[in-house]
Design a protein around this nucleic acid. Structure first.
Lengths: 342, 342
DNA sequence: ACTCCGACGTTATACGTAAAACCCCGGACG
DNA sequence: CGTCCGGGGTTTTACGTATAACGTCGGAGT
């Protein structure tokens, strides 16, 4: 509160370090850059490092970027950080980036909500590469047009022009869920699906439908809702109010939807899991906060971020990028139980 | 997958634009920089802008930073993005920043968990300013030592060397909660507090204690737990197992703790809110996902971010920074009810 | 004795931008 | 008729870094 305006503390430059160590600026750059084998004596190098530390020297990244032509910055495009899954993806990506001296800048993708603007207007315009989660294809086109290396997360294998792809084995997760419920004797299913139309959700629907198609007597009713507890509750309540025999299992695309479904079941005077089983997806913190705790599919979100960044760094380094599928695992908790004998 | 390595697409520079428009590079800079009143004719300026658009010219930010000495980048220091509250703070801050052509880079603060490293090692070393949420004071010292303008969020007014401070009126929120419960007839309180020792939580304890000190017959038992559902459940269960008359209200520092407390109450064979009322804090998505929905205090998280960034931009602009306190509001839901008549 | 070479540095240059300093030219003014 | 002025640009420079190109010097090889 006291000091209004400091006169801007002038940061020491490599030339200051050079002066202090009694060498030229070039020598400082060589020593601190690490490539001085046989170019600078050990004693001189030591003197340089000492001076640098004393002065608290930090290289000016803008100058380095200008010289080298790279920015050591990657862009991560995600729908929303308030979604715990993507917050965890960021955490993983940022951790790997930091280990390699990279920074990560975020761009909340134009995904229904929010204004659809050019990623490069709001984010730093100079980037080395992009990691993007599944998004609208028009925005994807804009990204591809930049010529930047692009790593896609959890996206349609049909998309082209992608340097690497890191996917979760969503289909397998959905098959595990469905198998779990079938084993419990369930036959009448409702699929509470996300209203967002991206690959990751389309896969869920396909996997669920595929499995049930092979089960005689199985029925499937699909409804959609935005990723929001209140909306999910309303959607689920509506489907439960329909005439005919009620479902015995509600399969949700997401834990948030599942929490809403549970509330809807109880509002209809029924119990979870005794009357109706409910399953989620993602295994967010939410899944163990509600009661009963949700049977769900655990997604290694941090791993997705780590693998994505690792792949991007590999591409930038000229090495072959390794994407790959990450396995997922069913976590059985209290929201599923054997189907009631009719 | 097909194209392994493009030969790096050379971005057009201001000189390319100049050549294309038939002027000098300086003219391009003047026109695109907006400061050309009476320096360049309208027709020439139009030609320059046309060429820039045709070539898809984007100024090289590294060069601009180097020349201008600023980076148009702010650092936001938060404990963890997986905490919805901070994700929302980021969202607000990033929105304001984007409106002013600024970028935001994140640094997860050393706050108990995670390695305590120098913020400037992992984040971009060149920053114009810092916005930091309440954190360990030693890390705060490191930040202050950089001489960068520092805006603190929800932090101790006693901290010095701060350009501006944006606080939530946490004490008032806690008084609202306590008053609400007292009105409902509650007298035996448990405070389920966060184990994290920062100002924002210390204020809660002081406010609660302060109010109850003036109420004859009121009792208060305090226990702490990390911000984690499972740990909160365990802590609450332990306190409920203690001998003597059980509490009729559990006041929690956070919605996450409250969710855990609810589970603990039910595990003891009691009901929320019939036997014991529970209150949260923050009004996260979680608060309406659990059942009963949590009575809690709504915090304007995005506003905190917006105000923080606005204040920082003001300081950077040489204008007086306006911090200030943001009001909070009690949201009464199903987790609180009149105390049972003994 | 002359060359050559490796160890140890230094000098010079380029990256792209912003802006200070300069330059030219046609008209107004004394 | 010489001088000044201001509109409309251009030339030049600096920002801090990485590195290519260039020196220097003492000793080993022939």
């Amino acid at each position: 509160m006291s000091s209004a305006r400091r006169p801007a503390p002038p940061r020491p430059t490599s030339r200051d370090v050079a002066r202090s160590a009694g060498v030229s600026q070039a020598t400082v750059s060589l020593v601190l850059g690490g490539k001085w084998r046989g170019r600078v004596s050990e004693t001189t190098a030591g003197r340089v490092r000492e001076s640098a530390r004393e002065l608290g020297y930090r290289p000016n990244l803008a100058a380095r970027s200008l010289r080298l032509g790279d920015t050591r910055t990657a862009l991560l495009v995600v729908p929303a950080l308030t979604n715990e899954f993507f917050a965890r993806v960021y955490t993983g990506a940022a951790a790997v980036a930091a280990e390699h001296g990279f920074g990560v800048v975020l761009y909340p993708s134009p995904d229904g909500t929010g204004p659809a603007r050019d990623p490069f207007a709001s984010a730093r315009a100079s980037l080395d590469g992009v990691i993007a989660s599944s998004m609208a294809s028009d925005a994807l086109g804009a990204l591809r047009g930049t010529g930047l290396p692009l790593v896609m997360l959890d996206s349609d294998p049909g998309d082209t022009g992608v340097a690497a792809r890191v996917n979760l084995d969503i289909a397998d997760g959905m098959r595990q869920v469905t198998g779990h419920l079938l084993d419990l004797g369930h036959r009448r299913f409702v699929h509470l699906a996300s209203a967002v139309d991206t690959w990751t959700f389309a896969v869920r629907a396909r996997a669920l439908g595929g499995v049930l198609a092979g089960v005689p007597g199985a029925t499937l009713r699909t409804v959609t809702a935005p990723l929001d507890v209140r909306a999910a509750t309303a959607a689920a309540e509506a489907v439960l109010a329909e005439p005919g025999p009620p479902p015995t299992a509600i399969v949700c695309d997401d834990d948030i939807l599942a929490a809403g479904a549970c509330k809807a079941v109880r509002r209809r005077g029924l119990r979870v899991p005794d009357d109706i089983s409910v399953t989620g997806f993602d295994d967010l913190a939410l899944a163990t906060a509600v009661e009963p705790e949700l049977t769900t599919v655990r997604l290694p979100a941090e791993q997705v971020g780590r693998r994505g960044m690792t792949a991007l760094l590999a591409v930038l380094d000229g090495r072959p990028a390794e994407g790959g599928d990450l396995p997922v695992r069913l976590v059985s908790r209290g929201s599923t139980a054997p189907a009631a004998r009719p």
